[in-house]
Design a protein around this nucleic acid. Structure first.
Lengths: 350, 350
DNA sequence: GTTAGCACTCAAAACAATGGAGTGCTAATA
DNA sequence: TATTAGCACTCCATTGTTTTGAGTGCTAAC
């Protein structure tokens, strides 16, 4: 890590030119190209000298002698940071996001992923929103069979969970009513942290011989609250990676696609991303270049993530995965726009 | 379609040898190989003659002159049908299927898919079980907010669905109780077909000003009953296709993987498979070779499916997708064994 | 009916030649 | 002193050529 990233203006411009060109072509870029296609008016020789410097500083590298240069991870990083700093970009209209008539959340998420994938030509993922400060809103036990109860649990944000509980001794309606009362009066408005052992003991005591049911219910509550348990991840456009030769060889493709199928690693990425503060200036947009992402298999990729918020505390993550030579500028802009869209869609009170 | 598939014994043996060898190597197989590695004791020249015949009959083909032969779809078909006929194979133990402690159905399904994928080295899919004769078991409306109701619907087989319903005018507890009574008494035990327009009209009439709620509930019921709506498909080992060069070129890989990601087409395959009778001798095992499968993108693959049954009427499908030169024998045996496992696991009453 | 043998075919592998993009260095220039 | 022109050099990618070997079909002999 060079701490001195005091690149002079010209080096900066050249680096930028190299990266932009490389993003476009995917081919190593040579001095002559830069000399010709920038308004710097420098000869290729001069560029060459500067390039040698940039290489020494670690911003670019040469696949082999007598090839042009390509950006290093460090180079990309500088470039991306620079983009980040640029004052709020004019938010361009995203034309017809087609989000309109999606009724079920799941479908909407899938749709967003798909739209993003086709618009950007990268692989995308989106995580279902999870609550990070869940409170119980409502609990209900009902008979559904002689020996089976149905427990329905509703959390803040109307997240609903069910569990079928099998009981040994049959409960009459009155007992059930009592249990319901007990549960609701004790637990409503509680968060996971607030339901401690003492409370549980007290509940069980009051439930008497039916304490087993209480246990089952509390288990379900615990499960409902647990985050990643519940986090679904939808992906789309995985095969877009075939558009980028540097990712299409069997080995890389295999690794990336496996990561997309297993989803375990993506979930980690999401969790990690959301753990960090996400309410910063950039609408929670993050860029992981190469090894910066905590996903083993994506060392040859870049990942751009954005955190969306449906309502206070209900958050999810959108991610775009592509080659390092990703069109960062466009991707970031698109994500930013999408965030705004979603904000508007959800924050004007449903 | 040659209707006369009266292959004499020798031709049959040769064909079988060709297919088996090809399954192994993936390379076109020549006359000399067959001559040497079978106990037929025939010279390569003889084999060549026979091969020419087999080619005329459409069972094998030549990628180009002076290459060996590979099985045609028709050849595979004959081979597979033959395997099917073989008397019930000894069901070998599947060692440690690890099914033991999977509690949630979803996890179990995923696990099965994974186990299959790693065991067979092919891509696998498994559909969640769906009921094909759904009956309503229980309905309940509850207050969860001032202006929101929660509808819980339980079907036969304890499939639970929820829906949050927003109401204009607040309902008092008494009304809610009445509605619940009304719904349960009228609908319990009903199947989708039995809930007809007349019934709906009668219900609405009895509900009076709250008929809007009834509509919403019925909508949810309809949704719950609708099959594919609810069918989840889990996949595993998609990248196994990279193990087979004939499927790993960018184009094929892209198509197959897309099919696996989108799942739409897989769902169709499942639906179609289940539609056919599935209680035949072969434990509902089907083989689709090349274009036989209704999945556009898999014309270069073979698909082996098996239908499992958790309890009366609750069925799902397992599928294995691989190259045409799939190890049919092993795959079919494995699936058959797995079916037996699942049967045992679920049919001894949970 | 089976086989040995031979001429022929063709894809894949090995090899050779060419071209061109790009570099580093040096010496001349402003 | 910073820039540039120019040149020799490197090396990959491309293309073309040759070689090799597996495999075939056919014919004639067994």
């Amino acid at each position: 890590m060079q701490s001195e990233h005091k690149l002079d203006d010209r080096k900066m411009k050249i680096l930028q030119a190299i990266i932009k060109t490389y993003l476009d072509t995917g081919e190593p870029v040579g001095s002559r190209t830069i000399s010709k296609f920038t308004d710097l008016n420098l000869s290729s020789a001069t560029i060459r000298n500067e390039m040698a410097d940039l290489e020494d500083l670690g911003y670019i590298l040469q696949p082999h002698t007598s090839a042009g240069r390509i950006p290093s991870d460090q180079g990309y990083r500088l470039y991306v940071d620079m983009l980040m700093e640029e004052k709020e970009q004019e938010v361009t209209e995203i034309k017809e996001l087609m989000l309109e008539k999606a009724d079920k959340m799941e479908q909407l998420l899938k749709q967003v992923a798909k739209v993003l994938a086709t618009n950007t030509n990268y692989a995308t993922m989106i995580s279902s929103p999870v609550y990070n400060r869940n409170r119980l809103k409502f609990i209900q036990l009902s008979h559904v069979d002689e020996d089976q109860l149905l427990a329905v649990i509703v959390m803040d944000g109307n997240i609903v969970k069910n569990k079928i509980i099998t009981v040994d001794q049959e409960l009459d309606n009155e007992t059930l009513l009592k249990l319901n009362m007990l549960l609701n009066t004790s637990l409503n408005g509680m968060s996971a942290e607030e339901i401690n052992l003492g409370m549980i003991a007290r509940l069980k005591e009051q439930a008497g011989i039916h304490s087993g049911v209480i246990s089952d219910v509390l288990d379900t509550v615990a499960n409902t609250i647990k985050l990643d348990e519940d986090m679904e991840i939808y992906t789309s456009g995985t095969t877009n990676i075939f558009k980028y030769p540097e990712l299409s060889d069997n080995q890389s493709a295999k690794e990336i696609i496996t990561a997309f199928e297993e989803k375990q690693q993506l979930a980690e990425l999401v969790t990690q991303t959301m753990a960090r503060d996400s309410s910063d200036v950039n609408k929670g947009i993050r860029v992981y270049i190469g090894n910066e992402a905590p996903v083993e298999n994506m060392k040859d990729c870049s990942v751009v993530t954005a955190t969306y918020e449906l309502s206070e505390g209900l958050r999810g993550t959108i991610g775009i995965i592509g080659p390092k030579r990703m069109d960062y500028e466009n991707v970031m802009k698109t994500l930013k726009t999408l965030m705004v869209e979603l904000d508007e869609k959800f924050h004007r009170k449903e």
